[in-house]
């Protein structure tokens, strides 16, 4: 599924977060949006899934303008999405198995046994075994993210959104999650959109990279193009230099 953002504007009070932003996310590819912390990346992601509506502009999912849909219509479109949140956002009153089963229970009429089989399969897909009975509080950060991904995959989504999936993880777990994103995309052929400020991870997993700065996409293309960008803002970001160092 293709995602298209056309002239998106969003402000919170006086603070303009997105300013006539345009971006097309290619289907069946991993696109990573990079940018400074607090630069509006998560806000952008929330526009795509309809959690935030733009002040102006349109969001299209496969030519359907979701920014114009009502809540009920939006819910139908959202069934095509899976989202991994920054801190996984697992329901802490439910076990791991119940978390993964939740979207299946909500949107299908499968029996308990059938759901259990899918839950096991999804957990295996993200490299987890024998955790169905555990509570989210008993899991490490990396495991929580894997469970979050298993839950996001539960309904075989066509679009998977990742909100800073490697934030707060050690380098080994980071690499684990990177591999998992690539493996998941290859396995599901889903359109993956990743929000990140982790440059190493970005170049490892991305087919396309977009740099968000000052509310706009200032550079977009394959990783090589971004690496060789002459734009000083992109260059500084990739090299990890603050503008005051210049």
């Amino acid at each position: 599924m293709k995602i298209q953002l056309v002239n998106i504007c969003k402000a919170f009070g006086d603070q303009v977060v997105l300013d006539s932003l345009n971006l097309t996310v290619e289907p069946h590819r991993i696109t990573v949006i990079i940018g400074e912390s607090g630069g509006g990346k998560s806000v952008l992601l929330k526009h795509i899934i309809g959690l935030i509506r733009p002040d102006a502009g349109s969001v299209y999912i496969d030519d359907v303008e979701i920014s114009a849909l009502n809540e009920r219509q939006l819910n139908d479109v959202r069934k095509n999405f899976g989202m991994l949140f920054q801190e996984a956002a697992l329901f802490d009153s439910m076990t791991v198995g119940e978390n993964v089963a939740f979207p299946i229970r909500e949107h299908t009429r499968l029996t308990k046994e059938e759901i259990n089989i899918i839950v096991e399969e999804k957990l295996r897909q993200v490299g987890l075994k024998k955790v169905t009975g555990k509570m989210p509080a008993e899991l490490s950060g990396g495991m929580r993210k894997r469970v979050g991904l298993a839950r996001a995959l539960a309904l075989n989504p066509k679009i998977i959104l990742f909100d800073e999936p490697t934030t707060g993880l050690d380098p080994i777990r980071r690499d684990d999650i990177d591999r998992l994103i690539v493996k998941t995309q290859q396995h599901t052929r889903a359109t993956c959109l990743v929000i990140s400020h982790d440059i190493d991870s970005t170049f490892k997993i991305a087919h396309k990279v977009a740099m968000l700065y000052d509310g706009r996409i200032i550079e977009y293309g394959p990783p090589e193009k971004i690496k060789n960008s002459e734009n000083p803002v992109v260059k500084n970001f990739i090299e990890g230099k603050s503008s005051s160092e210049q």
Binding site: K46, I49, G50, L51, E71, N75, D76, R78, K79, F81, G82, M83, F85, Q86, E87, A89, L90, F91, D92, S93, F102, P103, E106, H107
Partner: peptide
């Protein structure tokens, strides 16, 4: 407290993304 915690840990957003009101 419970719903507030769900709000600040994005669990309520997660419900929306799973098409659950």
């Amino acid at each position: 407290a419970e719903i507030g915690t769900m709000r600040v840990t994005e669990q309520i957003d997660a419900l929306y993304t799973m098409s659950v009101n």
